[in-house]
Nucleic acid binder design. Structure first.
Length: 270
DNA sequence: CGAACGACCTGCAGGC
DNA sequence: TGCCTGCAGGTCGTTC
């Protein structure tokens, strides 16, 4: 479900709702997520205060008095803030309850999401190998050119490799390539520095615009405040196969790369 | 080492 | 109505 802009939207929505709250209890109804949820999650979190909400790639980092909760939503995960706890329904796997009666509920039909608690997030194995944040200063045309040198992998797959860039998923990798006029199947190592410069700019723009729009709601995404995003109105190629390119009118094509759909304009993207 | 691929899941839409 | 196929916002570990 969520890529970087959606997770950032959730972070911003939840921040005012849960920071400073004290965790009274945690109920784990289903431990079989992407990684098994630790049996002791409740014991680790009970009594802790939520201090801060951060984000790294697509991970939401919930900092508490004694550590950090790493939450990943996978393909279908969502978080709901409930001011009063209602009866859990299908796929409501985890409830983090607060003093005062509200609760943060984790729901994930496909169970590709995950929850970890760590005292040293900077050393956590899921975070240490991640590439730079695309909206941070370590991400630049020089960097992208450097890590693409002599790579034969298709640029679309390269952009979706979290070790190269953190947090870019299928929608925004696809859309950034359209904006930069680069064919998704072009080998990463066969793109000029000038075009990488445009690509870096396109990635930043598309992510910033999506965050400003509250993310993309294709099916049922809602941010931390329960509201859907509206960036889907701004998608140029994603999900539009057969429809005319907004720039040139040629039908948008769909291809499969690494078992994921890519969309592009055969005239605008080379 | 880089690159490709299978694996992990449920739900939904569409064809027959 | 049911059954089948393919598709879906991710990413890790294995294999070549």
């Amino acid at each position: 479900m969520p890529e970087l802009p959606e997770v950032e939207t959730i972070r911003r929505g939840l921040e005012p709702l849960i920071t400073r709250q004290f965790i009274s209890d945690v109920e784990v109804r289903e431990r079989r997520l992407r990684w098994p949820v630790t049996r002791n999650l409740a014991g680790l979190l009970r009594g802790q205060q939520i201090l801060q909400l951060g984000r790294r790639a697509k991970y939401l980092l919930i900092k508490t008095s004694n550590g950090t909760l790493l939450v990943h939503l996978g393909m279908s995960g969502s978080l709901f803030y409930l001011s009063s706890v209602s009866k859990p329904t299908t796929h409501d796997h985890i409830d983090i309850s607060f003093r005062g009666g509200s609760c943060l509920r984790f729901n994930d039909p496909r169970r590709f999401g995950s929850i970890h608690f760590t005292t040293q997030p900077k050393l956590h194995r899921l975070l240490t190998k991640l590439g730079p944040e695309p909206l941070g200063k370590d991400f630049s045309a020089e960097y992208l050119t450097h890590v693409s040198r002599s790579r034969r992998v298709a640029i679309k797959n390269h952009l979706m490799n979290g070790q190269i860039i953190a947090g870019l998923g299928n929608i925004y990798a696809t859309e950034a390539l359209f904006r930069a006029g680069i064919h998704p199947a072009r080998p990463a190592g066969r793109i000029s520095a000038a075009r990488f410069s445009g690509l870096v700019q396109a990635i930043r723009e598309v992510l910033n615009e999506a965050i400003r729009s509250g993310g993309t709601t294709l099916k049922d995404f809602v941010g931390g405040d329960g509201r859907p995003g509206f960036f889907q109105q701004s998608l140029n190629v994603y999900g539009r196969s057969g429809d005319p390119c907004f720039t040139c009118g040629v039908p948008i094509k769909r291809i499969t790369q690494s078992q994921r759909s890519s969309y592009y304009c055969p005239r605008c993207q080379r």
